[in-house]
Amino acid sequence: MNIWLLIAMMALVTYLPRYLPMALAGRVRLPAPLGQALDFVPIAVLTAIIAQGALVRGGAVDFSLGNLHALAALAAFGAALLWRRLFVTIAVGLGCFVLLRLLL
Protein backbone atom coordinates (compact mmCIF):
# COMPACT_ATOMS: atom_id res chain seq x y z
CA MET A 1 0.00 0.00 0.00
CA ASN A 2 1.13 3.54 -0.70
CA ILE A 3 1.45 5.01 2.79
CA TRP A 4 1.49 8.62 1.55
CA LEU A 5 -1.78 8.08 -0.29
CA LEU A 6 -3.21 6.60 2.90
CA ILE A 7 -2.00 9.60 4.90
CA ALA A 8 -3.56 12.02 2.40
CA MET A 9 -6.92 10.24 2.49
CA MET A 10 -6.84 9.96 6.28
CA ALA A 11 -6.08 13.68 6.50
CA LEU A 12 -9.12 14.44 4.34
CA VAL A 13 -11.59 12.35 6.34
CA THR A 14 -10.15 13.72 9.59
CA TYR A 15 -10.20 17.35 8.55
CA LEU A 16 -13.68 17.56 7.00
CA PRO A 17 -15.63 16.55 10.14
CA ARG A 18 -13.51 18.99 12.13
CA TYR A 19 -14.10 21.90 9.78
CA LEU A 20 -17.57 21.57 8.22
CA PRO A 21 -19.71 22.49 11.26
CA MET A 22 -17.38 25.39 12.07
CA ALA A 23 -17.50 26.53 8.44
CA LEU A 24 -21.29 26.74 8.63
CA ALA A 25 -21.33 28.55 11.97
CA GLY A 26 -23.18 31.84 11.80
CA ARG A 27 -24.76 30.90 8.48
CA VAL A 28 -27.17 28.32 9.82
CA ARG A 29 -29.03 28.69 13.11
CA LEU A 30 -29.21 25.53 15.17
CA PRO A 31 -32.61 24.71 16.62
CA ALA A 32 -32.58 25.16 20.42
CA PRO A 33 -32.90 21.46 21.32
CA LEU A 34 -29.92 20.64 19.10
CA GLY A 35 -27.83 23.28 20.85
CA GLN A 36 -28.87 21.78 24.18
CA ALA A 37 -27.93 18.31 22.97
CA LEU A 38 -24.48 19.53 21.93
CA ASP A 39 -23.85 20.75 25.47
CA PHE A 40 -23.73 17.11 26.53
CA VAL A 41 -21.10 16.20 23.93
CA PRO A 42 -17.97 16.48 26.12
CA ILE A 43 -19.39 14.32 28.92
CA ALA A 44 -20.93 11.74 26.58
CA VAL A 45 -17.95 11.24 24.28
CA LEU A 46 -15.16 11.39 26.83
CA THR A 47 -16.96 9.07 29.27
CA ALA A 48 -17.50 6.51 26.51
CA ILE A 49 -13.77 6.65 25.67
CA ILE A 50 -12.86 6.32 29.38
CA ALA A 51 -15.15 3.30 29.86
CA GLN A 52 -13.66 1.40 26.94
CA GLY A 53 -10.08 2.45 27.66
CA ALA A 54 -10.23 1.44 31.31
CA LEU A 55 -12.30 -1.70 31.18
CA VAL A 56 -11.86 -3.28 27.74
CA ARG A 57 -8.63 -5.25 27.75
CA GLY A 58 -7.66 -7.59 24.95
CA GLY A 59 -11.07 -7.35 23.30
CA ALA A 60 -13.18 -8.21 26.37
CA VAL A 61 -14.63 -6.29 29.32
CA ASP A 62 -12.40 -6.99 32.31
CA PHE A 63 -13.76 -6.17 35.80
CA SER A 64 -11.06 -8.19 37.58
CA LEU A 65 -8.62 -6.76 40.11
CA GLY A 66 -5.82 -7.64 37.72
CA ASN A 67 -6.95 -4.84 35.41
CA LEU A 68 -4.52 -2.08 36.40
CA HIS A 69 -6.02 0.40 33.94
CA ALA A 70 -9.34 0.12 35.76
CA LEU A 71 -7.75 0.48 39.20
CA ALA A 72 -5.81 3.56 38.10
CA ALA A 73 -9.00 5.00 36.60
CA LEU A 74 -10.86 4.39 39.85
CA ALA A 75 -8.14 6.17 41.84
CA ALA A 76 -8.22 9.07 39.38
CA PHE A 77 -12.01 9.24 39.70
CA GLY A 78 -11.74 9.49 43.48
CA ALA A 79 -9.06 12.17 43.23
CA ALA A 80 -11.13 14.14 40.72
CA LEU A 81 -14.19 14.07 42.97
CA LEU A 82 -12.15 15.18 45.98
CA TRP A 83 -9.90 17.86 44.51
CA ARG A 84 -11.26 18.72 41.04
CA ARG A 85 -7.75 19.62 39.85
CA LEU A 86 -6.65 18.13 36.54
CA PHE A 87 -2.99 17.91 37.53
CA VAL A 88 -3.81 16.13 40.79
CA THR A 89 -6.11 13.66 39.03
CA ILE A 90 -3.45 12.76 36.47
CA ALA A 91 -0.74 12.47 39.13
CA VAL A 92 -2.85 10.19 41.36
CA GLY A 93 -3.98 8.01 38.44
CA LEU A 94 -0.52 7.62 36.95
CA GLY A 95 1.13 7.21 40.35
CA CYS A 96 -1.31 4.46 41.23
CA PHE A 97 -0.68 2.71 37.91
CA VAL A 98 3.11 2.81 38.20
CA LEU A 99 3.01 1.68 41.84
CA LEU A 100 0.76 -1.28 41.06
CA ARG A 101 2.94 -2.30 38.12
CA LEU A 102 6.02 -2.27 40.29
CA LEU A 103 4.33 -4.15 43.15
CA LEU A 104 2.49 -6.80 41.15
Partner: peptide, 27 residues
Protein backbone atom coordinates in the same frame (compact mmCIF):
# COMPACT_ATOMS: atom_id res chain seq x y z
CA UNK B 1 -3.50 4.89 30.81
CA UNK B 2 -2.29 8.50 30.95
CA UNK B 3 -4.94 9.56 28.43
CA UNK B 4 -7.68 7.80 30.38
CA UNK B 5 -6.90 9.46 33.70
CA UNK B 6 -6.58 12.83 31.95
CA UNK B 7 -10.06 12.46 30.46
CA UNK B 8 -11.38 11.54 33.92
CA UNK B 9 -9.85 14.77 35.21
CA UNK B 10 -11.75 16.71 32.55
CA UNK B 11 -15.13 14.99 32.80
CA UNK B 12 -15.61 14.80 36.58
CA UNK B 13 -15.57 18.57 37.25
CA UNK B 14 -18.07 18.97 34.38
CA UNK B 15 -20.58 16.71 36.16
CA UNK B 16 -22.68 19.36 37.88
CA UNK B 17 -26.37 18.71 37.29
CA UNK B 18 -28.23 15.47 37.76
CA UNK B 19 -28.68 15.31 33.97
CA UNK B 20 -24.88 15.39 33.56
CA UNK B 21 -24.51 12.34 35.78
CA UNK B 22 -27.30 10.55 33.92
CA UNK B 23 -25.54 11.31 30.64
CA UNK B 24 -22.17 10.10 31.95
CA UNK B 25 -23.56 6.91 33.48
CA UNK B 26 -25.35 6.06 30.25
CA UNK B 27 -22.24 6.69 28.16
Amino acid sequence: VAMIVAFIGIVVPALRRRADWACGATA
